[in-house]
């Protein structure tokens, strides 16, 4: 079993009803797990539960050997998550949002870090705009930038390719690989076979029975083959 994220007999769902089969997994430092499955299979529910955003119906999840405690400071320091939550401060600009995260996570040289992320995600020219003035794709880039600007040992990404153009998807793929190379463990829900093949070291198919498959097989499942 891995030492960063472990799940044993994890059952997830709503109102006491599981949405998919039991999940058991173990991820070591630097691994990238792609979670795939059809719409409604329960991928996001699994990842939200692993990230401590909702309580499991049964089973056990551990991060660095400790139970998931989303309100504990150390957990928040270690775990980053980018879900599809389009919520922003209406009065903060793009740059100020990223500065907030960078300073809150004690990033050294936050100004430079923000500039680098703005440049990487292609929103440097919108740095002084408020989120309401951004396009849907630009807001997605801002959320991703906020997820990557901070240090973390475990990163959850829920369909990060959503609303991104192909060029940005490729850049995102390189970024995820870079994170993994630096030792961050990544759990990635995706519907993009290319992103899966380029980044994932392991693949989990979510269905009535949850099973690990090769990344190539995962890509074929996404492509409908």
């Amino acid at each position: 079993m891995g030492d960063v994220l472990e799940a044993d007999g994890l059952l997830v769902g709503y109102v006491g009803t599981p949405v998919c089969g039991e999940v058991s997994l173990g991820l070591a430092s630097g691994e990238v797990l792609a979670v795939v499955g059809f719409n409604g299979a329960g991928k996001s529910t699994v990842v939200r539960t692993l990230a401590g955003r909702q309580d499991p119906l049964a089973g056990d999840v551990r991060v660095h050997g400790l139970p998931v405690m989303p309100d504990a400071v150390e957990f928040r320091r270690q775990v980053a998550a980018v879900f599809d939550e389009d919520v922003f401060f209406p009065s903060l600009t793009v740059r100020e949002h990223l500065l907030l995260v960078a300073r809150g996570h004690s990033v050294s040289s936050p100004e430079e870090a923000v500039d680098a992320e703005l440049k990487f995600f292609g929103i440097a020219d919108r740095a002084h705009a408020v989120p309401d003035a951004l396009s849907s794709g630009q807001r997605r880039r801002l959320l991703l930038a906020a997820g990557f600007i901070r240090p973390s040992s475990l990163l959850f990404l829920d369909e990060p390719e959503q609303r991104l153009d192909p060029v940005m998807r490729d850049a995102l793929s390189r970024r995820i690989q870079g994170c993994a190379d630096a030792g961050t463990t990544v759990v990635l829900v995706t519907h993009d076979p290319r992103l899966l093949v380029q980044t994932a070291t392991a693949c989990l198919v979510i269905d009535e029975t949850v099973k690990p498959v090769s990344t190539e097989r995962g890509a074929q499942i996404i492509a409908g083959a």
């Binding site: 400071v73 150390e74 928040r76 320091r77 980053a80 998550a81 939550e85 919520v87 922003f88 401060f89 209406p90 949002h97 907030l100 995260v101 809150g104 996570h105 906020a146």
Partner: peptide
């Protein structure tokens, strides 16, 4: 608030 929940709460601070 919603925005505070999304941007403040994940920070590793008191």
């Amino acid at each position: 608030g919603q925005a505070e929940g999304a941007w403040w709460l994940p920070l590793p601070v008191d």
